[in-house]
Amino acid sequence: MGTIYVVSGTATAPTAMASYDAALAAANVHNYNLVTVSSVIPADATVEAVETAPDLGPAGNRLTVVQAKATTGEAGTVAAGLGWATGPGPGLFYEADGSDPEKVEATVRAGLDAGRDLREWTFDDEEVLVTTAEADGEGYTTALTLAAYGQSEPIL
């Protein structure tokens, strides 16, 4: 499988979609067609948190992701959290978003606990990354944390 890259980004722009696109650009995953999947990490994958994604292929390709994102048009905090639990076999991602970073992290950890309880897999490691942004109410602000599953693939 290869590496799953966990990246984050924040941005403010005049529309909600533009702020999301700019947050994707901050993470270097803005030139792909994102296909969101639920939460299972393949057994042969490595999960690596990086500041920005490396080159994952040509623009316009399909990129498989798990993502947490939060967008607001009001002043305040936005938080997007992604957690992962891994072991010698398959692993899990869980995501949450909101306005309180501590609650977002607690929700992600509770989700990972519940996911582990559903499976008879071995989990040796757990990590959580919560991305926050402070919105000033001027335009829209997005925070995102995203896991990109390896290289992109042609969409056509």
Rank of each mutant, 00 (worst) to 15 (best):
M17V: 09
K69M: 11
F123T: 08
G137W: 02
Q67V: 11
A22L: 12
S8V: 07
L112K: 02
A75N: 11
A27G: 08
A26L: 08
G9T: 09
A25W: 03
A110N: 02
A135I: 01
A96C: 05
K69W: 05
G139A: 08
G137V: 08
K103Y: 00
R119W: 06
G57V: 09
A53K: 04
T10W: 05
E127D: 12
F123G: 13
Y149K: 04
T52S: 14
A13D: 09
D100R: 05
H30G: 15
G91T: 11
T131G: 05
E127C: 05
T72E: 04
E95M: 08
V40I: 15
T107C: 04
G89T: 15
R62N: 15
N61A: 07
L24G: 03
E95Q: 12
V40G: 06
T86S: 14
V6M: 06
T10E: 07
D136A: 07
A79Y: 00
G83K: 03
S99T: 13
F93K: 00
T131H: 03
A85Y: 00
A59C: 02
G2L: 09
E153W: 04
A80V: 08
T141F: 00
I41V: 13
G83P: 02
F93Q: 04
A26P: 02
S39E: 12
E95R: 07
T131N: 08
A70D: 10
I41A: 10
W121V: 13
T86N: 13
T10D: 11
N61I: 01
P90T: 13
G57W: 01
V108R: 01
A11I: 09
E153Q: 13
T145I: 08
A25E: 14
L156K: 02
W121Q: 08
D136N: 14
E102Y: 06
G9D: 10
P154L: 02
L156R: 03
N28E: 12
T86Q: 10
W121P: 05
V130D: 06
Y32S: 07
G139C: 13
K103A: 14
E153N: 09
G89W: 11
G83L: 00
F93S: 04
N61S: 15
P154N: 05
Q151E: 14
G2S: 14
L63S: 00
L63W: 01
H30F: 00
F93N: 06
A59H: 03
R119A: 14
A22G: 10
A16G: 10
E134Q: 15
D44Q: 14
L118N: 12
T132H: 12
Y32V: 09
D117L: 13
G73M: 01
N33W: 02
R119E: 12
A11L: 11
T107E: 15
P58G: 06
S99D: 13
E153S: 12
A106N: 10
Q67H: 08
Y140Q: 01
L129F: 03
N31W: 00
V130E: 04
P54D: 10
L82N: 02
T12G: 13
A143G: 08
E153T: 13
E127S: 11
G2K: 10
L146E: 04
E120W: 11
Y94A: 14
